[in-house]
Design a protein around this nucleic acid. Structure first.
Lengths: 197, 197
DNA sequence: GTCTATATAGCGATAGAC
DNA sequence: GTCTATCGCTATATAGAC
């Protein structure tokens, strides 16, 4: 992510619009079904102009992953202002229910992109693990603070469960499944029992 | 799935080879990256001949989903011969660890296909829920027999956890995560506590 | 039934005027 | 920096000989 300086061209917002459109289209349609023509049209930018901002389709895809990464980091750093690690973890889980309609329709924005990147053959494939890694590492820090000796394991287990629930809820388009399981997930976030500490 | 009868053309195996090749390629590369030329070459069938067996690419994709469905049904009916419902559920979970290398590399064959079908726009999109539905319904029958009043909920929770673990293990290409979490999953399959019955 | 050759369309990417 | 026009390729799908 480059900063805007005086030596750079004036901020037109076109690059940002392209990334936003691409992010939304990739979320709804998947990576391979999303064409540059669709992205350009949605962002209201002429097709040929896309290549002024990105030298290839794959580079635009990397920008999409970067945008998701920024989104995740921003959200997690907001959560850091919540008082207790338990409340922070519960607030994290609650986030999937606040976008329940999208999750039920298109799956988890992070999880489904991760699955697709894992089958992608271009250069953006390497970015695949980064998204969930960010979330797992943050959750591990919370579990550590909560008193768990196996904080990384707890974090992977929690995020796995969240991802699995999002997958099933979207596969079945079942919002009540999502709400019920996330209630259970949030209830399960507790300080460790003494023998597990 | 049509049966072979005397009035039908002799079984050449070409259709079966095409479906097998398509299934494997879709698993490794994803739906949209897999071309008819690749499938035809892998199955050693001339490209133009594909259209004798399938009237469109989307129909071939439906055949891939049907093949996965048959695979699932066959496996689950094998499991039905296992003695106890608890052992049957554990044997189900264990299946993901027996194909651990594939899961770590390409994800769960059922889950990743389900995610992709959910973003697919063709006619095969409707087949998306069928795969996991089969597994969840089977698991619910086992939980019912085990004595759970909320067998469907238990089944959805179990399959969600399995899918989430497969997703994380493939995202991080982490075999030990997969083995550790599936140990935990198998240990967690038990008869209900009295107050939950 | 089988296979070659090809039609047709849409994609990523580029050239070059402004 | 911006945009139009278009190139070259590859994909699905078809036509028609055998």
């Amino acid at each position: 992510m480059s900063e805007v300086t005086d030596s750079m061209p004036r901020r037109t917002g076109k690059r940002e619009r392209l990334v936003d459109s691409a992010t939304a289209l990739v979320y709804r349609q998947g990576i391979e079904r999303t064409t540059l023509a669709q992205v350009a049209a949605d962002a209201d930018v002429p097709l040929g102009n896309v290549y002024y901002y990105f030298k290839s389709r794959d580079e635009l895809l990397r920008a999409v992953v970067d945008a998701r990464l920024d989104e995740i980091r921003g959200f997690l750093s907001e959560l850091d202002s919540v008082a207790s690690p338990q409340a922070r973890l519960r607030a994290l889980a609650q986030n999937w229910t606040t976008v329940a309609d999208d999750v039920v329709m298109y799956g988890c924005p992070i999880g489904s992109l991760t699955v697709e990147l894992n089958k992608h053959l271009g250069g953006a494939r390497d970015c695949g693990p980064l998204l969930l890694r960010e979330v797992v590492d943050w959750a591990a820090r919370q579990f550590r603070e909560l008193g768990y000796a196996d904080a990384e394991v707890q974090a992977e287990s929690l995020i796995a469960r969240i991802q699995g629930v999002a997958l099933l809820a979207s596969a079945f388009h079942d919002r009540s499944l999502l709400e019920r399981e996330f209630s259970s997930i949030e209830r399960g976030i507790r300080a460790p029992a003494k023998n597990a500490r």
